[in-house]
Design a binder for these strands. Structure first.
Lengths: 135, 135
DNA sequence: GTAGCTGCAAACTCTTTGCAACTCT
DNA sequence: AGAGTTGCAAAGAGTTTGCAGCTAC
């Protein structure tokens, strides 16, 4: 049983074949797949899986905080396993998503929330840019 | 003719009664209204306005960069007139949206994009927090 | 055995669109 | 006059859900 599967079981979920497949898809994704993407990849491992199950499972995983649901102004959601904390820069010309971390930013966010009288629970930062031309 | 109306005309839009109403609603909004909100408020000024027109007009205003379309993980959009640049802190307990600005943050974002080889075109930052209890 | 899970299809929510009538300029 | 705009209703996209049968425990 993988660590991911274990965490689901610990949370009281039954470990079904479909869930194993979806976790496998998420675990091996190097990108930020949409529900449709997860569904397509899952079907390669289990032809009979339904998109309703994919939606339900991703919703559960989000509640358990095992994944993050992103909404990059596209009109649908994309999911990502929660591993290291990072943010995204979206290339406006290609749609490519680049991940980055920045310690200074983390501290600044906490400070800003504090100054407003808030405890920071969550946050989103997304940058949208165009590739700089080399001279 | 208000400045907002003038900017629409300059962009080649006809200044219809419906558009005037929608601009008026946006101009006097102190919050970040959803399409439904704008529609409800607009109806008070013009009973016959349709929600299709609200959608179309908000879409146009977004293209003209007169408004910003926000997607605060709620499953629908909220709109806001583009005035001073700022970000949002969402109170997780009340849903209240607090605006803030932070110069240090602005510089940092540009720097991060640059380091990744990108020119920053746009960005989103949202903080989600809980009110700190006073001791 | 049974609570929980699944696939299916229908329903739902938010948003967009085709069209005929209407209205700014 | 004519291009652009509107309201309406229908269609679209993404997502959720009721239900009967199935499955992990």
């Amino acid at each position: 049983m993988t660590e991911l599967e274990q965490r689901c079981v610990d949370a009281g979920l039954k470990m079904t074949g479909q869930r194993r497949v979806i976790l496998e898809v998420l675990g091996s994704a190097k990108d930020h797949p949409s529900v449709e993407d997860v569904y397509e990849r899952a079907k390669k491992l289990d032809k009979s899986i339904s998109i309703a199950t994919v939606y339900r499972t991703l919703g559960l995983l989000d509640e358990l905080d095992l994944v993050t649901r992103h909404e990059f102004q596209e009109g649908y959601s994309r999911y990502e396993l929660n591993q290291d904390h990072h943010h995204h820069l979206v290339d406006l010309e290609t749609g490519k998503v680049i991940e980055f971390q920045n310690e200074e930013l983390e501290l600044l966010k906490i400070k800003i929330a504090e100054e407003l009288g808030y405890e920071l629970v969550d946050h989103r930062l997304e940058l949208y840019g165009k590739k700089l031309k080399k001279k």
